[in-house]
């Protein structure tokens, strides 16, 4: 039976059924591993992040990488055309992906992408928002919660001033951005385990 890896970080959702699970993961890791590394490099550039303890840096990244990847790859989901662009650059329709077994995550990603893209953030705003997303990730593994909270407050204040400066007539933009955080958390809670654990379905 045909196997599918319905994740836009792959070249294609179709996987060669003759390949072993491990080889399929190996191929997938060629794009997933650099994507995770990029999240780490991004985190390193967040002012104050490196001042956290190494343990807390790792904890935040473990908890927040999925959410940062969702924000980063939101642009692959075209809500108007109802297509997803895979790494090869080819677009696949929602119907095609559903026929391969894509389910709630696909719907949630379209919904999230549509709302985020509607805010028309520029690169600087998106970058600062992504930083807020990372430091707002689950804190159950954090040792020094106060320092993470202080960093989160600083970044949220910075995001607020940037949005109010750039979007003076759209006061709701900042509120809508903060409301994305629980959306990302529920996406994370519902779907990250399967993706981050790389369960390849035979």
């Amino acid at each position: 039976s045909r196997m599918h890896l319905v994740c836009p970080m792959s070249m294609s959702p179709y996987v060669d059924p003759r390949k072993s699970g491990h080889n399929i993961w190996l191929e997938f890791s060629m794009s997933f591993t650099p994507a995770v590394r990029e999240v780490v490099e991004f985190a390193k550039r967040i002012p104050g992040f490196r001042d956290l303890s190494q343990h807390d840096q790792v904890s935040l990244l473990k908890a927040g990488t999925f959410e940062v990847l969702v924000v980063r790859f939101a642009s692959l989901f075209d809500a108007k055309e109802r297509t997803v662009t895979f790494l090869s650059g080819r677009k696949y329709s929602v119907e095609e992906l559903r026929s391969m077994g894509a389910g709630d995550l696909l719907n949630s990603m379209f919904d999230f992408s549509h709302k985020l893209n509607a805010l028309n953030l520029n690169e600087e705003e998106m970058s600062l928002f992504t930083a807020v997303v990372l430091v707002s990730a689950d804190r159950s593994g954090i040792e020094n919660v106060n320092s993470v909270e202080a960093l989160q407050e600083t970044l949220i204040r910075a995001l607020r001033s940037l949005i109010l400066k750039n979007h003076p007539n759209e006061a709701a933009t900042f509120t809508k951005l903060l409301l994305k955080l629980p959306d990302l958390r529920s996406l994370n809670n519902m779907h990250s385990e399967q993706l981050l654990a790389f369960k390849v379905h035979p």
Partner: peptide
């Protein structure tokens, strides 16, 4: 390249990238 069937894979990648001594055999 660590075993994909567990979250250890993600933590492994994060630690190496964070500590800056990432030896990426896949490249």
């Amino acid at each position: 390249v660590s075993d994909p069937a567990s979250n250890l894979g993600l933590e492994d990648i994060i630690r190496k990238a964070l500590m800056g001594n990432f030896e990426d055999k896949t490249e």
